[in-house]
Amino acid sequence: MRMLTGFLTLLFCMVFGLAGPASAADAYPSKPIKLVVPYGAGNATDAAARLLAKFLEQELKTGVAVVNVVGAAGTIGSTQVLKAKPDGYTLLWNHLSLLTAYHTGASRFTWDSLTPICNGVRFYKALVVRGDAPWNNLKEFIAEAQKKPDAINWGVNIGAGLHFEALGFETMTDTKFHYVAGEGEADQINALLGGRIDVCTPSPQIVNQYKEDGRIRALATSTEKRLPSLPDVPTYQEEGIDLTFVYEPSLYGPPGLPAAIVATLNAAMAKIMKNPEFIEGLAKLAMDPAYMDQETFKKHLLKLDADLYMFARQGGLIPRQKI
């Protein structure tokens, strides 16, 4: 009896001893990939990431898990990827908040510390107010804001794209608002409906949700042309404000990511962007595919960064000293 137990134990040990951890020497990707989304679950960027993850899984034949790491205008999530191993299993899905956070000093690094892989999708925001607000259109809103500077509460995620959009608006219309700190869209809508803020800029699809009960109204959108889902809402351009604010969540990797992995990912993304199912899914989220390969993307980022830096300077934001 004792000998049998001993023998079985030995056998067991051998079997499990051999079944070691998965070898990382296989071709990429051989393990599940972690896609870090530095914003809360449920908002536009996150929804796009989850849609992408579904298709990426099919393309790369491996699991793609979306992980939300919230905080500080997306910096906490971006920092995680910055410090991750450059083996292609930790990737970042972030948009221009990556750059704006650097200009406001919330982040100590910007896009060039990571490996930009490719551009992803594109979406815009809508300027919304409560249904019972006294302003019927954008002009009335701006007029009131100009009369009473620092009186209207605008909900932003300090340091993120939302913040810069508000700053851009202020610069272009010569107004001043009071910023109330918040997190993503759901949080902003909660505060808006609760009366704690008077205006915010969520993604356009939210507006349609409240069309029936009318508690939220859109005054304008930040797009180039009117959105098909919001045909009665003018764009900033139409109202004479030279502001187009585009959010382009894109794929980044840790610094030092091997070119081979970048190429694989680029190829997969390019294919997905042409997939009609994916495009349809995006359309439901009021987004468009906007693929750019690595080189084009880098050039795009350079220009975007310069523009945003100008915004920051004009808006009176002096970046914190670099540490």
Binding site: G42, D46, A47, Y210
Partner: peptide, 17 residues
């Protein structure tokens, strides 16, 4: 939060709609 992601994956946006 996890349930929320479960909803989003299935294309269900929380809200009055």
């Amino acid at each position: 939060a996890l349930l929320l992601s479960g909803l989003i994956i299935k294309d269900l946006q929380p809200g009055p709609a």
